[in-house]
């Protein structure tokens, strides 16, 4: 797609996203919010997996960091929701950096297992916090979890899904634009060069260690932001929301949408959440059909949904050119 056409398509989607939800009702809008929130998280994973070629099974851990970070800031430090969003992003980036350094030498399955370890260990630390005898035993709210307050703009309290949807949409738009800018930059080129040929990247002056570590920071930042929004969306923040399944769900969103595309991360999040919602309404064979749908998607959607659409459009354009030639 040309840049103009892509921008036009983006604007149409944005207009629909602004105009349609008031007609959808509370529950559907609630689901839309979840799509937008997961889309933000999956954009971060696209940077790491699609552009950096590093498989992470720990994305839910970073989202968990963002959710707890934002909740604690709001509850304990009386920080406003609006400030908690960038702060949770920064906390996510820092934790991403802290993971990126020790994981520098790990690749492929080793990296996947290391990130998996992080995602498994973190909720356990939170669950058993009171047993450590460090600081306040009720820091993470114990079995009840944390209940961050609802955000507000002046006297307008964001306490309906529709109001929160516009917040999520605005954050998502910023997140998408920022990701596109980052990935089209010299930094994004370096990251792709590192993925495809570490020797060529080094031979032409790319600081591969640095770009790798910072790609974890970017993934962590997006995960942190996703977590902060998710904290409000869930109402009660507990570790059960950040299971290994969520990490794998993020990976599926990235793969189904198309690993190398920001739009793909959004499409993947929408598709996976929609699939989950639809299957929830069906009978008992939910997990089976979920599995089958994913299998088919990965087998037949090379380059994800976005990759398939792009290939289609390319073929159409070639046919046009051939006919006019």
């Amino acid at each position: 797609m040309t840049a103009t056409r892509r921008n036009a398509a983006g604007l149409v989607v944005l207009a629909l996203a602004v105009l349609v939800p008031p007609a959808l009702g509370e529950y559907r809008t609630y689901v839309l919010c979840l799509m937008a929130i997961y889309a933000i998280g999956s954009i971060g994973l696209t940077v790491l997996v699609g552009h950096g070629g590093m498989i992470s099974l720990g994305h839910a851990g970073l989202v968990c960091v963002g959710a707890y970070g934002a909740s604690l800031l709001m509850i304990r430090a009386d920080v406003s929701f609006w400030l908690a969003l960038p702060l949770a992003t920064a906390i996510g980036m820092l934790v991403g950096l802290a993971l990126g350094y020790p994981f520098l030498k790990l690749d492929g399955p080793y990296l996947a297992i290391a990130t998996f370890g992080f995602a498994v260990a973190l909720p356990e630390v939170i669950n058993r916090w009171s047993a450590f005898g460090v600081g306040d035993p009720a820091l993470f709210g114990g079995a009840l979890g944390l209940n961050p307050p609802s955000p507000a703009i002046g006297s307008l309290i964001i306490n309906t899904s529709l109001r929160f949807w516009y917040v999520c949409l605005a954050v998502l738009v910023v997140a998408v634009l920022l990701a596109r800018r980052i990935l089209s930059s010299r930094w994004g080129q370096d990251l792709r060069a590192y993925r495809q040929s570490p020797p060529a990247a080094s031979a032409y002056g790319v600081r591969t260690r640095r770009v790798r570590v910072w790609s974890f920071a970017v993934a962590g930042g997006y995960a942190g932001l996703c977590g902060a929004l998710l904290a409000h969306h869930l109402g009660a923040v507990g570790t059960s929301s950040f299971s290994l399944t969520l990490s794998i769900t993020f990976l599926m969103m990235v793969v189904i949408g198309g690993v190398e595309s920001v739009a793909g991360a959004v499409v993947g999040a929408v598709a996976v959440v929609a699939l989950q919602e639809w299957l929830t309404g069906q009978t008992s064979n939910l997990q089976l059909w979920y599995g089958v749908a994913l299998l088919l998607a990965v087998m037949f959607l090379r380059g994800g949904v976005v990759g398939m659409v792009q290939a289609r459009l390319r073929r159409l354009r070639h046919r046009d050119e051939a006919e006019h030639a």
Partner: peptide, 29 residues
Amino acid sequence: LELLEESSVAENIALGTRRTASAGLLAAI
């Protein structure tokens, strides 16, 4: 060769310009 197989020819050649360009994340943002 060590080309970037999935990247465009332009992006492959652009890797050559890397040594004379800064590429920080902050600069990108």
